[in-house]
Amino acid sequence: MNNKTVTAEFKPIWNLRITLITALVLVLVAILAISIGPVALTFQEIVRTFFAMEGGLTGRERTLLLEIRLPRVVLGALVGAALATSGAVYQTVFRNPLADPYLLGTAAGAGLGATIAITSAGTSFNPALPIFAFIGGSAAVAATFLVSGRYFSNPGVLLLSGIAIGAFASAIQIYLQQRNTEVLRPVYSWILGQLTVSDWNNVLWAALYIFLSLIILFRISKLLDGLMLSDEEAFSLGISPNKIRIIAVVAATMATATAVSVSGLIGFVGIIVPHIIKGITRRVTNRALPTIALAGAAFLVLADLGARTLIAPAELPIGVITAFIGAPFFLFILRTTKGGLK
């Protein structure tokens, strides 16, 4: 029996080709998003400008490309990657396919932070908003861990603590809104999500934290698979489940809080994108994380393209788009893959 060879169809659990294809899709989607708009830019013009070749764009069109469209696409890609990856990580850590990156109070905390920023500065755009949202989101997660106490390793306890903290933060937020009715509109539009305020400063600030989180998550992605087993099995395979769990939750929360702080609450990405990848590949391994990140980036860039072109010159909130195209597509994948969720 020992000289038996592997049967003909040695299909590895994870295949890097899927990652490469997804990366290609992202590049194409990004170029598409950059070229489409009130002023159309051609593929050639874009490439020539990027590589500083002759025939590149100049003047207003160059500014449009480099200062308006590009930062917006890059920010969209970053936020999409952050939300999709943290969603996949939360689903593993909490052993719950419906876990989303706004769990643990991140969304409500960030919402409260944003509301405080808007109420204290009035209705004009407030540059401190992302910082307040980030602090609010992180504080809510810290509070969630604190109230879970020594039971934090129990996914159920952590989840319920997150819901309670979230409800508490939402209550304060609603109170503040009622006291300052003039801010209802800006708070509401922030909650629906937008990528409109992206200048390069915002983008670089977000990129720093999101890249850091993603690198950590990619590095532990293989070990994360152990968390899908029981803690005893994970331990017996040589990993310390609690340690991995803490690193994963902290990194995923940092990515989420950053995404929320620059773009508001963009729903569905964190649930839909991981499941689409898992449904297509019939694999749940976290070795898919880089692919999920790329797919999340492509998905959000595409959604943002829809948000700003569908009813141009007006803009739709991107959260509406992600739900509108994401939900049916998600259901389609779910049905055609014969219920990977069962």
Binding site: I13, P97, D225, M228
Partner: peptide, 23 residues
């Protein structure tokens, strides 16, 4: 704990993590 959406072959491959290395 049976991971949702995990196939038998993927599950068994995880069992090799100790000997062959994760991933």
């Amino acid at each position: 704990i049976v991971p949702i959406g995990m196939t038998v072959i993927e599950y068994l491959t995880l069992g090799r993590a100790k000997v062959d290395g994760w991933g």
